[in-house]
Computed example of a mutant assay.
Amino acid sequence: MTNNVFNQAIISQKQQQINEILQNLHDKQLLIINPRRKNGLILYKPYHAEFAGPGAAIGANFDHDVLDVLPVGKLSLMKPRTSQERINSYLIRRQWVKLAKQISDNTIPQQRAQVILNQFEHWFDLETANLLPNETFALLVGVLPQTMKKVRTQSELLLQ
């Protein structure tokens, strides 16, 4: 029973964090993903998802259409202190977008799915990547959730 109460408290805390982030984004507040941690934020938009990794800017006019968010790793957000920090965070966000575009430019869905899985396992670790749903990866690189599931199953079989 105590384990269940503990789990409920963690879920409640995470939901509160998500609600605060969404409020900041809808208020067009500019924040930066802490560049000194392995963390990031998946931003769910109407027709796709974007990943903002360490050092990337979120909010302002970039993310006014965000519907939901999913913290990855131990998320830490900061407010930019200088205009140079702001500029650097914009440039880093652009790099994350370019990387996603490079992955998405591959015309073979299974390859896109495999590359995004490999990238998340590299940026974080296998355990963190495994926590993310197939639907999330699918939205990041424009494949069907079934494609992600198939690629994940094949990867798991190779590891055995």
Rank of each mutant, 00 (worst) to 15 (best):
A52H: 04
V115F: 07
L70S: 12
R112V: 00
S76Y: 07
S104C: 13
E20V: 09
Q160I: 15
L157C: 09
T153Y: 13
L91Q: 14
L159K: 15
G73Q: 04
Y44I: 13
L25V: 06
Q29C: 10
E50M: 04
Q17A: 09
Q154P: 02
L75W: 04
W96R: 01
H48P: 00
P109K: 05
F137A: 03
L75V: 05
Q84C: 06
L77H: 04
G55S: 08
Q17V: 08
A129L: 07
I58S: 03
L126T: 13
Q15I: 06
R37P: 03
V151F: 02
P109E: 09
T107L: 14
V66D: 00
R86W: 09
I103M: 08
H64F: 10
Q16D: 14
R93D: 06
Q13P: 01
I92F: 08
N39R: 04
S89Y: 03
I58N: 03
Q114W: 05
Q111N: 10
E50W: 01
A138Y: 01
Y90P: 00
N24M: 10
F120A: 02
L75G: 03
L31E: 01
V141E: 03
I92W: 06
R94P: 01
K28H: 13
T107A: 14
K45Q: 09
F137L: 07
R152P: 04
I92C: 09
V66G: 01
I32M: 07
N4Y: 13
L43A: 00
F124M: 08
A129V: 07
K98V: 12
P46S: 07
L132K: 01
V5F: 10
K101E: 12
N19G: 08
W123Y: 14
Q16W: 10
W123V: 05
P80R: 05
E156S: 11
Y90A: 08
R112N: 01
T2I: 11
F51K: 00
V141C: 08
K45P: 00
P133E: 14
R36Y: 15
V66F: 03
D68A: 14
I18K: 11
V97S: 11
Q102S: 14
H64V: 14
I116F: 02
I116W: 00
L67R: 12
G40P: 04
L139Y: 03
Q102G: 14
N34D: 15
E127T: 13
M1S: 15
Q84L: 13
M148A: 02
H122P: 04
D27S: 12
Q13S: 14
D27L: 09
L67I: 11
F51I: 02
D68P: 06
L117Y: 04
L99M: 13
R112Q: 02
N24S: 15
G73I: 06
N106T: 11
V151S: 01
V69L: 06
Q29R: 13
L67E: 11
I21V: 11
L159C: 12
W96C: 08
D125M: 09
D27A: 13
L31Y: 00
N39C: 15
L99F: 09
K150P: 01
G53T: 05
A9E: 09
